[in-house]
Each structure stands twice: as structure tokens, then as C-alpha cells.
Amino acid sequence: MSLDLPPLIRDRLQDWQAGLRALDGASKSTITAYGADVAGFLAFLARHWGESPVPRRLAAITATDLRAWMAHERGRGISARSLARELSSVKSFWRWLAEREGFDPTVVLSARNPRFRTPLPRPLAEDAAREVLSVVGHQHETPWIAARDVAVVTLLYGCGLRISEALALRGSDHPLPEVLRVRGKGGRERLVPVLSAAREAVAAYARLCPMDLTAEGPLFRGARGKALNPRLIAKAMERARMQLGLPRTATPHALRHSFATHLLSAGGDLRAIQELLGHASLSTTQIYTGVDTARLLEVYDRTHPHA
């Protein structure tokens, strides 16, 4: 947070961040990023105006001021996507501040986000996803480690978990229930059905694991008994990718994308997929409809070549 800001504004910024933590359940890293976005914006205004950005002055902000800030950010190489995130942080703070200081935040809240093209997720084909699960199981010469890696990647593809969510499971979660309660981003909880293949993969790992999987300890362990480092699963995916000739986008997170895309292709309901993935907004989940359409067009072009 910038030390050039007046004490009152620094206090307001800290109060806003505390509210995000308490009410929205945002993660520490997210709150830090939001705070840096807003502090940077306020520091720009101080330089742009030549005076401290106190509430009275902030209430009089103009659309021209906002355009000047956006031009400054783009001029220093900030992408349209990153600028949109910064503007979102600023709008959130402005809305909060206006309620407490009693001014109209419309000028900031009505600012248009910069346009950018959202890249589509890069899921694996269904046969490739199944091959990954098979190949991972034959990579390590130590049986329990091979079984562990299979269990983790099966949870990513079979349940749509994030790698952080899979590695956050505790010993008390074994044996896996038919429906698993998962705590995702922002502390949001969701219920995820667990396929029998995932339950069996985790059970196979637990039987072979030489460590005592205590109720409060991590379910997935490294070779020395500590919590499994996600980098080890990324390396297992790298090896599988090279063996199968898959693109560099075949990462652990691509298995989660594959879970969503394959469900949608099979006729899954978008709202239900949103709940399974733990997305706060349906618009986040709707990106998978673009993947499905892109695949359809790819198949069309391949099977109906243009003259």
C-alpha cells in the first residue's frame, strides 16, 4: 500500500480490505491484489491532481480523470485484461467509500471496462484424459507414489477439483463419501458427487501409503510424509504430456477444464456445472459453451472441407 496516501485514505483502504475479508471471504492474496490496485489508482490521482486524494476531492472525480488513468496504465504496458481487473477493484472500493462519505459514485461505477478477448480453456479430448490417468499410474517405480498421483489426477478430472482443493483434503476425508464437501475460492463451500473411480483410486493410494493418514493431517503426502507439493503433480502431468504427445496446455488445471467441457458436451446443465465447479458467477462457467462451439466448428471444418 502506498505510504504517499493521506492517513485518512489509508485507514479507509484498510477498513475496506477488512470488510472484504470478513464479509466476502476473499483470500489474503486476493485482498492484497485489490488493495494494490486501488492504492495505485489513488497514487496516480495524487500525481495527476497535484494534491492529496482526500474524500472531498475523490467525490469530485471526473470521467476525464478516469480516462487519463487508463491511458497511463496502458502506456506502461498493462494489458486490457489486467486493467479491467484494476478497474473492478477501484469500483468496489468507490462503492464502499461513497456509502460512508455520502457522495455519488456514478462517475466511477459507470466507467466501461476495456475490451479484451477471453481465451478459451484448453481441455483434453476424452480419450486423452483417460490416457493421462493410465500413464500417470506407470510413471513412478514406488507403488504408493504412483497410486497417489493417479488418485489426485482422478479427482481433478472425475470431480472437477482444483489442485489446491484436492491437496487440501484431510485424512478424515478418507474413505471418500459419495458426495464430498469442498471448500473452494473465497471460502465458498460446495457439494461434489464423487465417482466410484475416484473413490477407488483414493482407497488404493491409502492402502499402499506407508504413512499414518491421521484425521487432521493431509490426505496426500510427499515421500517424506509432509503435505504433497502441487509441483509434483504438475511434473507427473508434464511426463504424461510428453509420453502422449499432448500440447503444453495439458496441465493439472486442464483436467478440471476437461471435466466441465465433457459434462457440457454430454448434455450437462450449465447451472449445475457452475455449482459443481464452485464458480461464483454463471458468466465464468459460460466460457465452456465457447469451447463446445469451437470444437463443433473444428469438427465441421474437418469433415466438410471448403472447396
Rank of each mutant, 00 (worst) to 15 (best):
Ala46His: 04
Gly171Arg: 07
Ala146Ser: 05
Gly184Cys: 13
Val135Ile: 14
Thr142His: 06
Ala43Thr: 12
Gly102Ala: 05
Ser281Met: 09
Lys185Asn: 11
Phe220Ser: 07
Val90Leu: 07
Arg207Thr: 04
Val152Thr: 11
Gly267Leu: 08
Gly225Val: 12
Thr289Ile: 01
Leu23Phe: 07
His306Gln: 12
Val202Asn: 11
His174Asn: 00
Phe93Cys: 09
Phe116Asp: 08
Ala250Pro: 00
Pro121Lys: 04
Trp69Glu: 04
Gly75His: 09
Ala147Ile: 14
Arg56Val: 07
Glu86Val: 15
Glu178His: 11
Asp65Tyr: 03
Pro177Ile: 15
Arg162Ser: 13
Ile273Gln: 04
His48Asp: 07
Ala80Leu: 00
Ala129Asn: 08
Val182Cys: 12
Ala98Pro: 12
Gly160Val: 14
Ala84Ser: 15
Ala280Leu: 05
Tyr288Asn: 06
Leu213Gly: 11
Ile273Met: 04
Pro177Gly: 14
Glu189His: 14
Leu133Ala: 14
Arg181Lys: 13
Tyr34Arg: 14
Ala147Glu: 14
Ala128Lys: 01
Arg221Ile: 00
Leu45Ser: 02
Leu155Cys: 12
Arg302Trp: 04
Glu126Met: 01
Arg181Ala: 13
Ser82Ile: 11
Thr251Pro: 07
Ala33Arg: 03
His262Tyr: 08
Lys91Pro: 11
Glu216Val: 03
Arg130Leu: 15
Tyr34Leu: 14
Leu255Tyr: 01
Trp49Lys: 09
Ala22Phe: 15
Ala46Glu: 06
Arg12Asp: 12
Met1Gly: 08
Arg67Asn: 05
Pro175Phe: 00
Arg112Asp: 13
Trp69Phe: 05
Phe44Cys: 02
Val194Trp: 10
Leu161Phe: 01
Leu246Cys: 00
Thr106Phe: 09
Gly186Asn: 13
